[in-house]
């Protein structure tokens, strides 16, 4: 646990020392949230959550790929592997670090949407946060799984955009797709973004509570767990 915590803290300190990354992490999505506040109020509420779902996905995938590639390029990755630190310590460190940052990003977006830009949320805050936590877990698993396959920063950018855009757009987050094809249904089934968006929509429009959201949360938890284990196993086979 001590090693995992050390990996988390090194990551957090690196992020805090990088203003450009902080801008990407917080500034850009807050700006998008502000711009969306000019939309009609009935669209705005869901659009903010769409932005949140999209940016959290983009953030964790680019960050996970960027961190691991960066560590491999500077040699700190190999130095960690040359110690008694296991892949599980390292991946747990990355997982916590990504989870904490994505959670911070989500809270900033939610709070800025409500208190700065006037999102008319008056119910379902707890259910929203619970769904978001599970969604961040799933996306972090997906991000660490993908990071094991990516060999350059260009690949990280391309894959992050691809995965997030396909999952967000075809997953029906910003707009409903009438009479979807088999492929779109499949994407909606495996995409954590789609599960998260549908669950959040139910919270906001139907006012459902956490107990009614077990199916999407179990799906997202399963996706995250399987991909996280797959990611660790992929890294273990690299040697």
């Amino acid at each position: 646990m001590r090693k995992t915590w050390a990996i988390v803290m090194v990551g957090v300190r690196q992020v805090l020392a990088d203003p450009a990354y902080l801008m990407f992490l917080v500034g850009l999505p807050v700006m998008m949230t502000w711009m969306m506040s000019f939309l009609p109020v009935e669209v705005y509420e869901m659009a903010i959550l769409g932005v949140l779902v999209m940016f959290v996905g983009l953030n964790v995938i680019t960050s996970a790929g960027g961190y691991i590639l960066g560590e491999k390029q500077t040699g700190t990755w190999q130095r960690m592997l040359a110690s008694t630190t296991t892949y599980w310590h390292i991946m747990a460190g990355y997982f916590i670090r990504l989870f904490v940052m994505a959670t911070a990003q989500s809270l900033i977006l939610l709070l800025s949407g409500k208190y700065l830009f006037g999102a008319p949320w008056d119910h379902g805050f707890l259910a929203t946060i619970v769904v978001l936590m599970v969604y961040i877990f799933a996306m972090t698993g997906l991000a660490l799984f993908l990071a094991g396959f990516l060999k350059s920063q260009e690949q990280v950018q391309a894959v992050a955009m691809g995965v997030v855009m396909v999952g967000t757009m075809l997953g029906g987050i910003f707009f409903q797709i009438d009479d979807p094809s088999f492929v779109i249904k499949l994407i909606a089934t495996v995409s954590p973004q789609s599960w998260a968006a549908n669950a959040l929509r139910d919270v906001l429009t139907l006012g459902v509570g956490v107990s009614s959201l077990l199916t999407p949360m179990l799906w997202m938890t399963a996706i995250g767990t399987i991909l996280l284990i797959g990611g660790v196993m992929k890294l273990q086979t690299e040697g």
């Binding site: 020392a17 990088d18 500077t74 190999q78 130095r79």
Partner: peptide, 11 residues
């Protein structure tokens, strides 16, 4: 291990 390039965190 002392790698050829410094394997350290510059920040």
């Amino acid at each position: 291990i002392v790698p050829q390039e410094p394997a350290l965190y510059p920040t």
